[in-house]
Amino acid sequence: MTATHSFSTLIPDTILDAVESTGLWSDSRIYSLNSYENRVYQIGIEDGSPVIAKFYRPDRWSKAQILEEHSLLLKLQVAGVPIVAPLMFEGKSLFCHKGIYFCLSPRLIGQHPEADNLDQLYQLGELIGQVHKEMSAVPFSERISVSPLMQMDQATSQILSHNLLPEKLKPLYKKQINKLRGMSEASIKAYWPTQLRPVHGDSHRSNLMLHEGQFHLLDFDDCQNGIAVQDLWLHITQTENPQQQLSEIIEGYETYMPFDIRELGLIDVFKSVRVICYAAWLQNRWHDPAFVKAFPWFDTENYWLNHLNELKNCELEWENMSR
């Protein structure tokens, strides 16, 4: 693929020049880390520990939105919350090199949580509760506010307007989406809280790290005004009997913050939105060679058949939970 994409100019020399523009001196070692939306690298530093360089995807977040994220992280760091905040250089945390915003942060070494470990689920609940407590004072003014129906509509419209979804599957897709949208609308009407609060927005297992016996929450790239259950439901891995997992997470969470049990009625809304938006995200980034390489099956009919099956499973799980 020869088309220009967001990171086509981000070659090794550019990466090292950007890092050294902050005053650090690299040893020229670059190790690419697993990130597709942005570009993230571990950079070796002369006479020092490696740093993590995060280059933000152009045109995704504004400078004001990124700075609001950084301001939050620095406040959480001062409050003693186990997160990873950006490094400051001459009072700045955000830099721009050849049109791409970037920041540097310390390297954190550890392990991701075990999916079914109840003790760890309790600890994760504690951490998310602590984060929410410290974030709750002031809503975001620059970041987005969650809107599941709007997200669902935008993702659906995007998918249907392109030709990656085979034409013969579009009627089935529309029918399944309409079912999920109707179920989502009913749940939102019944359970949506009166006020949103700042949340992480994408607190899946890969964004949590067990370091020196303590979990740390990473990558606040999607922080937004939302609801508590957004940051909790992603850790429920059992579909037949999730109550025990939920109990551990909520018990840990309520060490720091009260949890409105009515929000549990919105879990299936967020599950459905995540499945729909994931496909739209892949489609929207398909011009990026990194996506074509990492997800070579995306433009096949088999992918979309599996996607339709995922959407059907969302409906069936929803119905089972309602019984």
Rank of each mutant, 00 (worst) to 15 (best):
Q77M: 02
E90T: 13
S71C: 03
H70R: 13
F89A: 08
K63P: 05
S71I: 00
S71V: 09
W61I: 01
Q65E: 11
F55K: 06
F89G: 04
S71N: 08
E46W: 14
L76H: 06
S62Y: 01
E68G: 07
S49C: 13
E90M: 08
E46H: 15
G48Q: 02
P58S: 01
A79T: 11
V78W: 09
P58E: 01
G80Y: 10
L73P: 02
L73M: 09
R57A: 01
P86E: 09
I66T: 11
F89H: 03
G91E: 09
V81C: 06
L74E: 12
I83S: 04
P82D: 12
Q65N: 02
D59I: 01
F89C: 04
I83L: 05
F89M: 06
L87C: 10
A64K: 14
L76N: 07
L73F: 02
K54H: 12
A85S: 05
I83W: 06
S49T: 14
L67N: 12
P86G: 10
M88K: 14
M88Y: 07
D59R: 05
E68I: 03
E68M: 07
S62I: 00
Q65A: 09
I83A: 04
A85W: 03
A53Y: 10
A64L: 12
E46L: 15
A85C: 03
K54G: 09
A79F: 05
G80I: 13
A53M: 14
S71W: 01
D59Y: 00
K75Y: 01
E90R: 10
A53R: 11
L74V: 08
K54I: 13
R57N: 04
G80Q: 04
G91H: 03
F55S: 05
I52T: 15
S49A: 14
